[in-house]
Design a binder for these strands. Structure first.
Length: 271
DNA sequence: TACCAGGTAAAAA
DNA sequence: TTTTTACATGGT
């Protein structure tokens, strides 16, 4: 049991909302007592305390993972939201976009969520985690890339992946792409590298920039929920097209990522 | 019961 | 080059 400071402002309940509202996440498992996650093979419990979180057990790697998970690297204090969004940012003060700490986890999660509802995707992904991941106490470690690489397409289609997605996940696991090395590239270069892989289009690459690398200007215009949210705040009554949503991006410069996350959270949680 | 949901690639026009 | 279609599951 040890205190880990989180940059202020920080609201634990708002930040962890996405680990509850779409159904349980077996890898980042929410319970009334706090968040459970496996780090380095050990289960860690994270709960809110004033000024940050209590982490048990806490070591250097765990601190790094938990801070990333809770969006600690976003510069919320320096966030200057668009005037239309400002009241929502004030209402939802302390919300930090929760990040996927590992790149493979981010990409498999995004592939799973392509086209289908987040709740449907969550059910499929949890079966994948049960099948290929390792359980500690309550939470599972996300399946290791080499454990997935030796799976068969049928292993994945049985769980609920489409044949296409089964191939995307297997080719990603077996690809020689160094996913950790992507963090040193520019936004455009990350997208160029990722979209060379089968099944990774602009939407998936944009969310990788947004929810794994925390790039300030990530703006996932292909995302249907984001288009609905943008349309609700900036539209004229109809749903904006992808191109129209893209054209609004510069208005939020350089806070596109935070803007997208606040728009989505505000839309899910109307005032 | 249908229909749609935080896309992508391949086929068809 | 642009438009259309197949895909799989879970919630409403």
């Amino acid at each position: 049991m040890a205190f880990l400071a989180v940059p202020q402002p920080f609201d634990f309940e708002l930040t962890t909302e996405r680990f509850r509202v779409f159904g349980p996440d077996f890898v980042t498992l929410w319970s009334p007592g706090g968040l459970h996650r496996v780090v380095g093979g050990r289960e860690v419990r994270v709960k809110a305390v004033p000024g940050g979180v209590d982490v048990d057990p806490l070591d250097e790697e765990t601190g790094r993972v938990v801070l990333k998970l809770l969006g600690g690297e976003f510069d919320l204090a320096g966030f200057e939201p668009d005037p239309v969004l400002a009241p929502e940012v004030a209402r939802l003060r302390g919300f930090r976009p929760a990040l996927a700490p590992e790149p493979f986890e981010m990409l498999v999660g995004a592939i799973t969520a392509q086209q289908i509802s987040v709740k449907a995707a969550r059910a499929v992904l949890n079966r994948f985690i049960e099948r290929f991941g390792v359980r500690a106490e309550r939470a599972y470690a996300f399946p290791a890339r080499d454990a997935v690489a030796v799976a068969s397409p049928e292993d994945l289609t049985t769980i609920g992946f489409s044949r296409s997605k089964a191939r995307y996940v297997l080719e990603l696991a077996r690809s020689d792409q160094d996913l950790d090395a992507l963090s040193s590239l520019s936004d455009d270069d990350v997208k160029a590298e990722l979209t060379r892989l089968p099944g990774i289009g602009e939407w998936t690459a944009d969310w990788f920039l947004a929810r794994h690398l925390a790039r300030p200007r990530a703006w996932p215009v292909g995302d249907l929920a984001l288009r609905y949210a943008v349309s609700a705040f900036y539209g004229d009554g109809r749903v904006l097209t992808i191109d129209e949503t893209r054209e609004l991006g510069p208005r939020f410069e350089p806070f596109q990522n935070l803007t997208a996350h606040y728009l989505l959270l505000a839309s899910r949680n109307p005032g």
